[in-house]
Design a protein around this nucleic acid. Structure first.
Length: 543
RNA sequence: GCGCCCGUAGCUCAGUUGGAUAGAGCGCUUGCCUCCGGAGCAAGAGGCCACAGGUUCGAAUCCUGUCGGGCGUACCA
């Protein structure tokens, strides 16, 4: 319908030699305003210096519309053109959905193109926290959406195991190790206080009971890193996230990429030395102040490898690169992008998604967390408490740019108040109806069904709702906003429940209508199942 | 101070690139199960879309300013 109208309108506009750039088609909120609506007459009014109503009249007079698709159109003040689809066209779409099946909702926008989504990227200094959880699910869901848009997607985790923080981690483990041996030790200043390091120290002690003071810090560091990465990967696996690439920052040093960046920026005259450090003249690139790239200690700050890493991303030739950051990294990406620009590299294909913070609410109160004191709730604890499906849904049901209030009490409720169960129930309910239909000897044969019987108000509403699924996925892809999908699925479930309450699906007195309704439910189930799959949430057959 | 995000119903939040009478869930009031899963549905109440200007056929949406809240503004990542 959309494609058809779009094509016809463009053809007509060209015929009249009117501009086509402002052509838009949208779904009106009210059913009386039709199935698709265009505001083209109003947007042309200024250019043509004519009244919108007149423009609409003239435009539509010469339109040849297929009466099998378009039932009628209205022209309404101040100049909307509203199109109504025929019910045959509408119901025929059900067969299209059934035929598409598992691939209903997919599109070819990114076909033949590659995309990379970088997310999580937490350094292996501790377990993932509820804060990391948000971008973990955000990134994975976005990667799913890009996959459904045809992209060949690489999920990437970038980490740093060199640097000061990792050395501190090694020192902290060493302290814990000797503490377990009964020696008087102190955690280093700013060291890692979390209990997980005690567990790791115990494991190390059991494996290697005879380490002494002369053992190099690197032994401890490596042991801690491996142990923590194992914990992180287990957490990721528990919520269904699997990265394709774990990119180690260290390789950037080994391959000389760090030095190359310094060299390139130096050639551009954008580096200078001050107080023993190497500074990047970002102030010349429209950024407030200059940034240090190499500390006076000789160690680079995180910005330098970030730039080198992104230079590599560009070199790797992805058509689309998406970086997911928390709000606390907001300052980093303008530096990186401007560095790419001055190095003459393409950067327009790099999209940055910044998400705001997560607040856990329990019994109406904020759960206080402080990373410094190792007093944080881990992602694992959250999964233990509410389950992976709920975790995934709650993390993405709000816009990434808004703060997220994660209501633990609501998340734990296994009733319709919990949107996850509401959705899953809708899916299970359809399958239940199917089981019951089979028991009663009703064949759910959609080829035989007379779909023209599907013309009641809430039935039509349900069909239209199902048809929006591909549009919603495309909207998510365009905006890189995933929260539209859960809210769409929720309204699809509502439309289904409404339909179910109003009409009886299994009616042995009326087998033709029953078959038609069963065919519709099959289409709804496909949209629900596919939508839940993109969200990474299970679609249970019964609950 | 400066930069980014947010401010919509009592609470938590949606609101396609500006569109037609601003929506949902929770909470509150009230209905609907001899009948396919009541883990459901319906009705009611509840709004100066933070505030003030501007842009235009039209603004919750865009621009400017003000006021609130969050995050940054490190030779931490």
């Amino acid at each position: 319908m959309f494609e058809y109208l779009n094509r016809q309108l463009i053809a007509r506009l060209e015929e009249l030699e009117w501009p086509t750039e402002t052509l838009q088609l949208s779904r009106p909120k009210k059913v009386e305003n039709g199935d698709w609506s265009s505001n083209i007459a109003m947007t042309l009014a200024r250019d043509l210096k004519r009244a919108p109503m007149q423009i609409a009249e003239e435009l539509m007079e010469g339109m040849q519309l297929d009466s099998k698709i378009v039932e009628k159109y209205d022209i309404l003040r101040p100049g909307f053109i509203n199109f109504f689809q025929t019910s045959d066209y509408l119901t025929s779409q059900i067969r299209t959905i059934l035929k598409a099946g598992d691939s209903y909702g997919r599109n070819a926008f990114g076909s033949g193109k590659t995309a990379q989504v970088e997310f999580v990227s937490a350094n292996p200094t501790g377990p993932l926290t509820v804060g990391h959880g948000r971008q973990t699910v955000l990134g994975d869901t976005l990667a799913n959406i890009l996959t459904w848009s045809g992209y060949d997607v690489t999920r990437e985790y970038y980490f740093n195991n060199a640097g000061r923080q990792m050395r501190l981690l090694g020192e902290s483990l060493k302290a814990r190790y000797f503490e377990l041996k009964g020696e008087l030790t102190l955690l280093p200043d700013g060291g890692y206080e979390g209990d997980y390091l005690i567990d790791i120290a115990k494991a190390l002690l059991a494996e290697k009971p005879d380490l002494d003071e002369t053992t190099e810090i690197d032994r401890f560091k490596e042991y801690a890193e491996n142990s923590i990465f194992a914990i992180i990967k287990t957490s990721l696996e528990r919520i269904g996230v699997k990265h394709d690439v774990f990119y180690n920052e260290r390789s950037l040093y080994e391959d000389g990429k760090i030095d190359e960046v310094l060299e390139l920026l130096k050639e551009k005259g954008l580096l200078y030395e001050k107080d023993g450090a190497t500074w990047f003249k970002t102030s010349e690139l429209g950024i407030e102040q200059d940034r240090v790239l190499v500390k006076s200690s000789g160690e680079p700050t995180y910005r330098l490898p970030d730039i080198a890493y992104h230079r590599e991303k560009v070199a790797r030739g992805f058509d689309l690169v998406v970086d997911i950051f928390g709000a606390d990294h907001i300052d980093a990406y303008p530096d990186v992008l401007s560095a790419l620009r001055v190095m003459g590299l393409k950067h327009e294909h790099i999209q940055v998604v910044i998400h705001q913070f997560v607040t856990l609410m329990r019994s109406g109160e904020i759960v206080k967390m402080s990373t410094r004191k190792a007093n944080f709730v881990t992602l694992d604890e959250l999964i233990d408490e509410v389950g992976a499906d709920v975790v995934r849904y709650f993390y993405i049901m709000r816009s990434a740019s808004s703060h997220l209030n994660f209501d633990l009490d609501l998340a734990k409720r296994q009733t319709d108040e919990n949107p996850v169960f509401y959705l899953q129930y809708a899916h299970a309910r359809i399958l239940s109806i199917y089981r019951r239909a089979k028991e009663r000897g009703l064949e759910a044969d959609s080829d035989q069904a007379d779909l023209s019987l599907l013309n009641e108000e809430f039935t039509v509403a349900l069909i239209n709702q199902v048809l929006e699924f591909p549009e919603v996925l495309d909207h998510c892809r365009r905006t890189l906003e995933v929260h539209h999908l859960p809210s769409y699925l929720y309204s699809l479930a509502t439309a289904l429940h409404k339909f179910y309450t109003e009409y009886k699906v299994i009616d042995l007195e009326n087998p033709d209508l029953s078959k038609a309704r069963l065919a519709l439910l099959a289409a709804v189930q496909i949209a629900l199942r596919n939508g839940l799959r993109v969200l990474g949430i299970s679609a249970p057959e019964q609950m």
